Amino acid sequence: MPNILFAAAPDQWDDYAPHLRRALDQAGLKTARVGPDIPAADVDYIVYSPNSPVQDFSRFPRLKAVLSLWAGVETIVDNATLKVPLTRMADAGLREGMVEWVTGHVLRHHLGLDTYITDQSGTWRPDAPPLARHRTVAVLGLGELGAACARMLAALNFNVTGWSRSPKSLPEFACHHGAEGLDTCLASAEIAVLLLPDTPETENTLNTRTLALMPRGAVIVNPGRGTLIDDDALLAALDAGQIGHATLDVFRTEPLPKDHPYWAHPRVTVTPHIASETRPDTASELIAENIARAEADEPLRHVVDRNLGY
């Protein structure tokens, strides 16, 4: 049976230990050795988070795969010492949490709930919102999380369009790709949800030029990566009224500095990177499944393409 090193933040092992052991047992790996203290020479798999002290993978001569606990792998994908397959986290809990957060905030902006929550002045304003089928929502990024969010929004009858760097074909909504496709997608996007990976190609996807393509007063919802937005361009677009509101969960620097203009801007909602998180129970199930697949010489799920960076 394999030896599995748990290499993450020191306080995470206590949370993961019972779930990981249970999941390994259920996957037929009952006698697998797992924990944070496996000698390097004996390690077959590493359950990993990039904030782990482990950075040199050449120390593990038997290593077969590294299974990341994070959905984002931008801080590990270019590690020259990593010569084995790397998988990213795409467990059911992470997906469900993201779908719930995105759906909640899209509905919030679609229905104009802020107006009624923040203004109880006694002014009677019976302005009904349009139906969802009359509201176009663009989802930028059609990976595991983006596709799940787009499907849910389409199920709620929003007019959903999707965009990805490379071609995707999803039957529930129209898909666009490439530079021209991005412009087309943004041109009709009354609400844009950003769920792209953090790569050199996706940095500043929303910038002065692309923000200007959107319908005036459009809304940005970003639970993806802070680098997807040119912050100065977004602030200028908000001040000019080109963008009506931005709900932001991720930032270039986290925690977001207290003096950052986003905090005080009346058209910005800051949430502290809570859109979704890896949950020990569902994450452990995916990790155990992947190790069992590897031991059976079956393909791993959610393998990172090192050339694309995700």
Score class of each variant (00 low, 15 high):
60 F>E: 04
16 Y>Q: 02
260 H>T: 05
209 R>A: 12
168 K>W: 09
249 D>W: 10
13 W>A: 10
15 D>K: 14
156 L>H: 04
173 F>R: 00
271 T>Y: 09
76 I>F: 05
251 F>M: 09
15 D>V: 12
130 P>E: 13
305 D>P: 05
224 G>P: 01
74 E>L: 07
65 A>K: 05
296 A>M: 04
114 D>V: 11
130 P>I: 09
215 P>I: 00
241 G>V: 02
24 L>E: 03
164 S>P: 03
21 R>C: 10
89 M>I: 12
130 P>K: 12
193 V>G: 01
259 D>H: 07
93 G>C: 06
254 E>Q: 12
102 V>P: 08
138 A>C: 06
49 S>Y: 13
7 A>K: 07
57 F>L: 09
157 N>H: 15
22 R>P: 07
50 P>H: 11
40 A>N: 08
182 L>N: 06
301 R>I: 13
282 T>L: 09
12 Q>V: 12
25 D>I: 12
294 A>G: 15
56 D>G: 12
125 R>I: 12
4 I>K: 06
301 R>A: 15
210 T>S: 03
265 H>F: 00
41 A>G: 09
166 S>R: 01
292 A>C: 09
114 D>S: 13
294 A>I: 05
59 R>H: 12
280 P>V: 14
14 D>R: 13
192 A>W: 01
181 G>P: 00
161 T>D: 09
97 G>M: 01
11 D>T: 13
225 R>C: 06
233 A>M: 01
96 E>W: 12
55 Q>W: 09
232 D>P: 10
8 A>H: 08
296 A>L: 10
193 V>D: 03
130 P>F: 14
222 N>A: 00
209 R>Q: 11
200 P>Q: 00
287 I>S: 07
202 T>C: 10
300 L>R: 00
114 D>A: 10
170 L>T: 05
188 S>L: 11
171 P>R: 12
37 D>P: 09
251 F>W: 05
45 Y>G: 14
305 D>M: 08
261 P>Q: 03
121 S>T: 09
300 L>P: 08
26 Q>F: 08
152 M>G: 10
68 S>A: 10
66 V>W: 10
177 H>V: 06
44 D>H: 07
162 G>N: 05
137 V>A: 01
148 A>S: 09
65 A>F: 06
90 A>H: 08
229 I>E: 02
259 D>C: 08
192 A>M: 01
201 E>Q: 14
103 T>S: 08
48 Y>H: 13
277 E>W: 12
126 P>S: 15
156 L>T: 02
177 H>K: 04
98 M>Y: 14
239 D>E: 10
124 W>S: 04
74 E>K: 00
279 R>F: 15
73 V>R: 06
53 P>V: 06
